[in-house]
Design a protein around this nucleic acid. Sequence first.
DNA 1: GTCTATAATGACGGAGTAGTCAGTTTCTAT
DNA 2: ATAGAAACTGACTACTCCGTCATTATAGAC
Lengths: 202, 202
Amino acid sequence: MPKISAEQREARREQILAAALSCFSRDGFHRTTTADVVRESGLSQGTLYLYFKSKDDLIAALADDRHQREAALNALAEHQEDPLKSIHALIRLYAGRLSDPAQTDSLRVGLQGWAEALRNERVRTGVLEGVSSARSALVRVIRRGQRTGVFKRGLDATAMAQVLIALFQGFVLQAAWEPRRDLEPCFKLVDDLVQDSLSCSR
Amino acid sequence: MPKISAEQREARREQILAAALSCFSRDGFHRTTTADVVRESGLSQGTLYLYFKSKDDLIAALADDRHQREAALNALAEHQEDPLKSIHALIRLYAGRLSDPAQTDSLRVGLQGWAEALRNERVRTGVLEGVSSARSALVRVIRRGQRTGVFKRGLDATAMAQVLIALFQGFVLQAAWEPRRDLEPCFKLVDDLVQDSLSCSR
DNA sequence: GTCTATAATGACGGAGTAGTCAGTTTCTAT
DNA sequence: ATAGAAACTGACTACTCCGTCATTATAGAC
């Protein structure tokens, strides 16, 4: 029989992941040593390897966690009645994340992950799946708006979704580089642009 | 007296930088060893250190190079007469870069650099200066358009510039992750959106 | 309390890497 | 030719880091 409960086990895991997030945010994946993570977590070298197969596995686990959370968020915003409200809700949601000091570590590590996606197949798959599912969600919202006559018909929904995603990704970069920078005017402008370009009511 | 001319010296330097770009694109900054760069360049371990102080210095030099080139590009597009044409030219310029197979290494390494900017002060400064100068260039173009009455007056030029930059940055990510993906519909859409939201002619 | 399986520990080995430097080659001036 | 300086070489060093494993600690069964 297990010496610790499943909850305790999960808590240990989270403890390591939290330590790793903090270290990775500070020093990046590659300049962070497993010893750093161990020190930050308060555990021991060996224990790390009871919970993760390798350092790469730890990185991938962080990425998985992140994408799971993101998917949940996106799903949340999608289920508004008014399609225009859905999109505005998404914009507000991301705007909030970018300016929330509690999420800077996550932002910074996310950016590291984007670079890592170029070489690490598992991270790459996660990122692309994340983008792709966000895109389909947006496309569904836009198409629904077009069907119900709230949005202009002529618009290329896929392209529009992709543009919105690129926009958010760019803001993530800028927020990660300069947490102080106020992106609020930009979000305001995007709100207006979306209104103008999507909505039939001018 | 020097044994080789300044041109030869510069050529050697470029030779190393080219090798580094190729290696970094393939394996990332941190999984690339100096031995890799040396092998790819056809020189020797010691020679690398005759041209660069350290591996970090090599990375920073690549970043500097890049930003120099980018600044030149931006300046080029800025000096169109018609402000709207300036912006469209910039869009086409970036669109071209993203789909040019000869530039994938540069794209991929650029993304690495964006992550590196979080920790490496010199890279960070370069990136921020690059963004900032692109932004001011865009702002100048937009303001000029507003003065001459081609663009809507009410618009927040700074926010608009920042939005455009975020957009491009997002496209860079997507192009780096999926070189196959056709972003053309997106650029088309951006063209139209810019037209709609900036221009007074509808 | 004792026994056993599970969990945790941390010192260590082996692999790999950045940067150096004593020696070699090559260019130029004379 | 030859000297001497500049450029180049590559084996080597000192160091770091990941992952292991023999050992120790601990929780629960009885």
